[in-house]
């Protein structure tokens, strides 16, 4: 067959009767002709599909990919030297935990979980960093850190006391947020839809994982709220962001709603107000290491309410 284009016309059913006969005779001559025909058609179809590649530019597109990739890196300037003595609190509050889909990650990292309501779990990492896990927190960490960085991942609430090492920045990755620090201590609450980061002392950079251009730097008593694509920075009052760990609570004109939310982080209960007015009652008290029963009694007296504890639920009602 000299005119291979005839085979294409045959494939496209554009042949006339004579041409059709010509092709079919050729095809029936041998199995190898049949095979060749199939190969030509294969090439014909493939050569049309590959038009998708006609404008491809390997170099330009590779550069584009590289520039889009957020390669984790943080530069530490000399002004960060005072970090030795600083501590930061980072609180990331979220609804639910995310599932790590990355099997490779799971292979390489160890995971530790605190499933106890009553006890905190303390892990010491390879570099001496101490991590205190609150109830239901998961920490993923490598047995040995990489040469130039210390990277961990967190779900839930934990307190970090990071060993100082200027050469190896410490970073915590959560579902949506990246937290970068040098050597300090801070508290992290990690969830899925919303992230709140609060710093007590020190300086911490909080960025959107999916767009590193969105970031804030926090100094003491500042809080970042990461929700959707935005990170907002606010001032915060009080030091109760540590309380779940220290057992120290400083309430000053806190509403009962605020008080309950803060206490929940340490005692892991749910609460319910019998009526709306009760939420606005205010509490001023310094508490240090009291049990939940003691605290309930203090609140009952100070706020003129009744509190019943039933299977992990606090019911707050009017003191009749």
């Amino acid at each position: 067959m000299d005119n291979l284009y005839l085979l294409i016309k045959y494939y496209q059913k554009k042949v006339n009767a004579d041409e059709k006969l010509l092709v079919e005779n050729w095809l029936s001559e041998s199995g190898s002709n049949q095979k060749k025909y199939e190969q030509y058609i294969e090439i014909w179809n493939a050569s049309n599909k590959v038009k998708a590649l006609k404008n491809i530019s390997y170099e330009a597109e590779w550069e584009q990919i590289k520039s889009k990739a957020k390669i984790k890196r943080i530069s530490f300037k000399k002004t960060y030297g005072f970090w030795l003595r600083i501590a930061a609190v980072i609180a990331l509050m979220l609804g639910s935990y995310w599932i790590l889909q990355d099997k490779l990650f799971e292979q390489k990292y160890l995971m530790v979980q605190n499933d106890s309501r009553d006890e905190l779990k303390v892990i010491t990492l390879e570099d001496g960093t101490k991590v205190t896990l609150n109830y239901q927190a998961n920490l993923y960490y490598p047995k040995r850190f990489k040469k130039k960085s210390r990277e961990v991942k967190l779900e839930g609430n934990a307190f970090f006391s990071v060993a100082k090492n200027k050469e190896k920045p410490f970073s915590i990755e959560t579902e949506m947020t990246l937290i970068e620090v040098l050597g300090t201590s801070f508290d992290v609450r990690a969830g899925q839809k919303k992230t709140a980061v609060t710093v007590a002392t020190g300086k911490v950079r909080v960025s959107n994982k999916s767009n590193k251009n969105v970031f804030v730097e926090l100094i003491p008593n500042e809080q970042a709220i990461h929700e959707g694509d935005e990170i907002q920075k606010n001032k915060v009052k009080g030091d109760n962001y540590f309380s779940w760990k220290t057992g120290t609570f400083r309430f000053k004109d806190h509403s009962l709603t605020e008080v309950m939310e803060i206490l929940e982080r340490r005692f892991h209960f749910n609460h319910h107000f019998e009526n709306e007015d009760l939420k606005l009652r205010e509490l001023t008290a310094d508490l240090n290491g009291e049990t939940l029963d003691d605290i309930i009694e203090i609140i009952q007296i100070s706020c003129q309410v009744r509190i019943n504890l039933k299977s992990n639920q606090l019911i707050i009602s009017e003191n009749e």
């Binding site: 597109e61 990919i65 990739a69 957020k70 490779l104 990650f105 390489k108 990489k146």
Partner: peptide, 19 residues
């Protein structure tokens, strides 16, 4: 193209070397 580029971006961002 976008799908393929995303895969390479993710690959660059992952830093689990040698796996």
């Amino acid at each position: 193209k976008d799908m393929v580029q995303t895969v390479f971006i993710n690959l660059l961002e992952r830093s689990d070397e040698g796996i």
